[in-house]
Design a protein around this nucleic acid. Structure first.
Length: 888
RNA sequence: GGGCUUGUAGCUCAGUUGGUUAGAGCGCCUGCUUGACACGCAGGAGGUCACAGAUUCGAGUUCUGUCAAGCCCACCA
């Protein structure tokens, strides 16, 4: 068996990545298997290439998917990408700007062509990246949110919601991004605490000479659009203002004083300027009092003609000018520093402007009711479950969803405006004539839908809805969604609403929410910080398996994931360890004349001499350990405890399989022995370990597994289709565990002793093992292994040791090394230190055991344990003291 | 203003239902080129479990409060 000396994952990872795809082994079956496991990918945006957060998400998904597939489920991981309306339009516009182009000069059709070009490039890149990272998805079912099929689903949903009265169009105050020139949903506005000012402005009371009312505002420029001043009807300070008007400074306009609860007597001066066209609260107040709306800021953030002398100015410049002018007129009473929350566009960071415009909305309350119910009844489960509360909180306070965007890249709203009679026709396909006046002068609504509208349909639109496809029947509801908390409302909540509404069933049964990938200093990764980790770079450097393993080890549910070069170095060392364990086996197989052999199951192989001869205890031991490991790993993956699964695998493979089992088996790797029971058992254990490791480290395990088959046709063609090891009672072997356990204790104690006494590590030592009961016999059987692993030749004795020897003890035995007294200073120090600890423990236990009243309330078992422990400590202490005395 | 999360070794984190002397990886210290592996082997040091109370025979684990950090939601000018 040939195997390269050095572990170089770059040599084989791309090969298997491509081979998995070409051989179609990730293709989900339409045959009915006993269990179906399906998951749709959170579609990455086609804005660019994948970042490390995607890799974390995909690794977690892939582990789960590969595990289910190996467990024999009909497993589907459906891949795809999202057109990401605003985000993609922005990056393409930026690219056009570099070419000195502008989307408006290009025109809508040409622009969209350019975006499709971009999509082709980055969609491809994303796919290549995912393949390279080992994502085991079914590419034959790949989807894109703007595919014809998905677009049809979008129109279908829009029309049905409209017909049901759950979509409406109207003029409302919306969040507007002056840079993106589009309306935004509430979720797309991020509020940021900002240091601002509170300007106190005097509004002269009409027909008086000196009197004025002072209003406070954080946005002085909006006063140009004021149409009232509000005071609270109960506020005694302003009783005399009731029914009067004030002169709006700078604008030569008289505006009424209105009585409204908008004005809180406790805040500021208790008088509020009212700008119905530029503030949400004022908009509502304006409706209550029938106030005119004067729009002074336009869609580009500039002052309109209504702003008189300020027309054409940028809104912030206008603010400066207004303040200056007020100051000059002596109308600025004071300026206070003030911290306020400013809404910014989620995409471009521009300060959002509340603006009145006509938009399309989804009436969300009725949809939310069902979405709340399915989580309340536990049909959908969040993991970790604390997200349930966050979900409810949002759902209970849900507001209508503005779904129209004044963009070009996206699903065009399926509504047509009649140019003759202004009728609006909502239809699945373009109508030829107006349903009211029969005119053929119809123009489609220019707006597109919020990206999340199509994403909300993803779990069923990707499976062929509205057709009743086989896939839909087989794979909906999906089993699981793995995603980040940042899109819980944007996406998860809306999928639940849409799934319940249109499929009459939940879109997924469980939602696993993963954390954020952070750097070594726990910083969020961001391009501006320059601390991003590029998956392709680290994959190339450390190997995909190592990066995956590093991510998994950090992926404790409910925590963020810290990723650093250190971690990837250590997981690469683990991969290297696996490689070298394989090397040990392969090189020795070559030497022993053992052909490559793929057992594909964990089965004890007895020596050819016949069943009367015992299977070696080491084999029974590793099978038992492997069995326990399989049990725990299965359990961990089932519960999305990826970090635990990774750690279990690590510990088992390195510290049990390599450190003990392989070391114990080395002597049996004899030259030209051919395949025998020893080899069969070693290979069975190794191959089982590979299968156990495969979901986490798919490349390395496939590479080694394929080498074990050496190109011969095997039943599963890939380890990815082999059976995942499951717990089997027949492999549990307590006797073997105890036996090897004693061996391990003796060897470890012997090593400790010789290091403690600073003895030459190569020096072969003599010693005596004073063992009690059957430990004596057990230990005797392993004298050779003990000598090999610890460098101590042991004699065995049932008697207690003489005092004064260099010894270490357990409850089963005392190990004595025969060394000259002169070398025992270290031993003395250790004994003294140990005695301190023992005395403390004894005192504590005696104290507890002397308290009759508390003792009577303790469970018997606990008390028994305490007594046993106390006796053991005491005997140990006595032994140590004798040993110390003998050293004098 | 509401809600959530976190605080355990130098660092990053585990620690299921309360039960002997609290674990891992990295880092650190000591010694080893032992024929798979120095991406290694062997041994070791290092913790008042943020703080204060409460419940309990017993608390890292449950409860309350305090402090600190982070995140989410919210139209008070």
């Amino acid at each position: 068996m040939q195997i390269e000396k050095v572990y170089e994952p770059q040599r084989f990872e791309p090969h298997w990545a491509q081979w998995w795809i070409d051989s179609g082994i990730f293709h989900a079956s339409q045959r009915a298997l006993p269990h179906v496991f399906s998951l749709v990918i959170p579609p990455p945006n086609v804005t660019g290439s994948l970042h490390i957060g995607h890799m974390l998400e995909h690794t977690e998904i892939d582990v789960t998917i590969r595990w289910h597939r190996m467990c024999g489920d009909n497993t589907l991981w459906l891949p795809g990408a999202d057109h990401a309306g605003i985000a993609t339009q922005m990056v393409v516009e930026r690219k056009l700007a570099e070419e000195g182009l502008d989307r408006r000069t290009l025109g809508r059709d040409k622009f969209i062509e350019r975006v499709w070009e971009w999509k082709a490039q980055y969609g491809d890149q994303i796919k290549r990246q995912m393949i390279r990272l080992g994502a085991s998805c079914d590419w034959s079912r790949e989807r894109f949110t703007l595919d014809p099929g998905l677009s049809r689903a979008v129109r279908e949903v829009f029309v049905r919601l409209f017909e049901k009265g759950l979509i409406y169009r109207g003029e409302y105050m919306v969040n507007w991004c002056p840079r993106c020139r589009t309306a935004l949903s509430d979720l797309e506005v991020k509020s940021a605490e900002t240091q601002g000012h509170l300007w106190h402005i005097r509004y002269p009371i009409s027909s008086t000479t000196a009197a004025h009312v002072v209003v406070a505002t954080t946005r002085p420029e909006t006063m140009l659009g004021d149409t009232a001043v509000a005071v609270n009807a109960k506020d005694p300070r302003y009783f005399d203002l009731h029914g009067r008007t004030v002169d709006l400074p700078l604008m030569n306009r008289q505006i009424p004083v209105i009585l409204d609860d908008l004005a809180d007597p406790q805040f500021g001066t208790g008088a509020v300027k009212v700008t119905p066209a530029h503030d949400t609260n004022d908009f509502e107040a304006g409706k209550r009092h029938n106030l005119p709306r004067i729009k002074v800021i336009d869609e580009g953030g500039r002052m309109t003609a209504e702003a008189g002398p300020y027309a054409g100015l940028d809104r912030f410049e206008a603010r400066r000018r207004v303040v200056e002018d007020l100051e000059r007129l002596g109308l600025l009473e004071k300026i206070e520093p003030y911290t306020l929350a400013i809404g910014k566009c989620d995409r471009c960071g521009t300060v959002v402007e509340p603006l009145i415009s006509t938009q399309w909305f989804v009436r969300t309350k009725p949809l939310a009711e069902k979405a709340i119910a399915v989580v309340e009844t536990g049909r959908i489960q969040f993991i970790p479950e604390n997200w349930t509360k966050t979900y409810f909180e949002w759902m209970y306070n849900i507001r209508d969803w503005c779904i129209s965007r004044q963009l070009w890249w996206g699903h065009r709203i399926p509504a047509w405006h009649c140019q003759e009679c202004a009728e609006i026709i909502v239809a699945r396909e373009a109508p030829t004539s107006c349903t009211r006046c029969g005119s053929s002068q119809l123009v489609q609504d220019p707006d597109v839908l919020d990206t999340w509208f199509s994403s909300a349909l993803w779990p069923f639109s990707t499976l062929g809805w509205p057709d009743e496809t086989e896939d839909l029947k087989m794979f909906y509801p999906t089993s699981l969604l793995i995603t980040g908390f940042d899109i819980l409302f944007f996406w998860v909540a809306r999928m639940v609403m849409m799934g319940c509404e249109f499929m009459g069933d939940i879109p997924f049964r469980q939602v696993y929410i993963h954390g954020l990938v952070r750097d070594a200093e726990r910083q969020k990764m961001s391009k501006t910080r320059g601390n991003t980790i590029d998956p392709l770079v680290v994959t190339e450097k450390y190997g995909t398996d190592a990066v995956r393993m590093a991510l998994l080890l950090g992926a404790a549910p409910g925590t963020d994931i810290v990723l650093s070069e250190d971690r990837m170095e250590s997981t690469r060392a683990f991969a290297n360890k696996i490689w070298n364990a394989a090397r040990l086996l392969f090189v020795n197989m070559e030497r022993s004349g053992v052909e490559p052999w793929l057992p594909n199951r964990l089965e004890t192989f007895r020596p050819e001499a016949g069943p009367s001869i015992e299977v070696s205890v080491e084999d029974r031991w590793i099978f038992s350990r492997l069995n326990t490991c399989a049990e725990h790993v299965n359990h961990a993956i089932e519960q999305y405890r990826y970090h635990e699964a990774a750690q279990l695998l690590w510990h088992f493979f390195w510290h049990e399989f390599c450190d003990w089992y392989l070391e114990l088996k080395k002597p049996s790797f004899q030259e030209n022995a051919g395949i025998n029971a020893d080899w069969r058992n070693v290979l069975a254990a190794f191959e089982t370990a590979l299968r156990l490791l495969h979901p986490a480290m798919p490349f390395l395990t496939e590479e080694l597994w394929q080498r074990l088959s050496n190109g011969r046709p095997t039943r599963p063609v890939s380890i990815a289709l082999a059976e995942y090891p499951q717990y089997g009672e027949q492999h549990t072997d307590f006797a073997a565990e105890r036996e090897i356990g004693i061996l391990q204790e003796v060897v470890t104690l012997a090593r400790t002793l010789r290091t403690e006494m600073k003895l030459d590590p190569k020096l072969q030592l003599q010693g005596t093992l004073h063992a009690r009961g059957d430990a004596l016999e057990i230990a005797r059987r392993h004298a050779d292994a003990m000598r090999r692993l610890s460098g101590v030749s042991l004699e065995f004795s049932p008697d207690p040791p003489l005092a004064g020897a260099a010894s270490r003890s357990t409850s089963q035995f005392d190990l004595v090394l025969h060394v000259p007294k002169t070398q025992m200073e270290a031993q003395r120090r250790r004994l003294e230190k140990e005695n301190d600890q023992l005395s403390k423990n004894i005192a504590s236990l005696e104290n507890q055991l002397s308290d009759e009243s508390s003792l009577s309330r303790k469970p018997e078992q606990v008390v028994a344990n305490m007594r046993a422990k106390l006796a053991e400590y005491k005997s140990q202490l006595a032994k140590n003291k004798a040993a110390l005395n003998a050293l004098e």
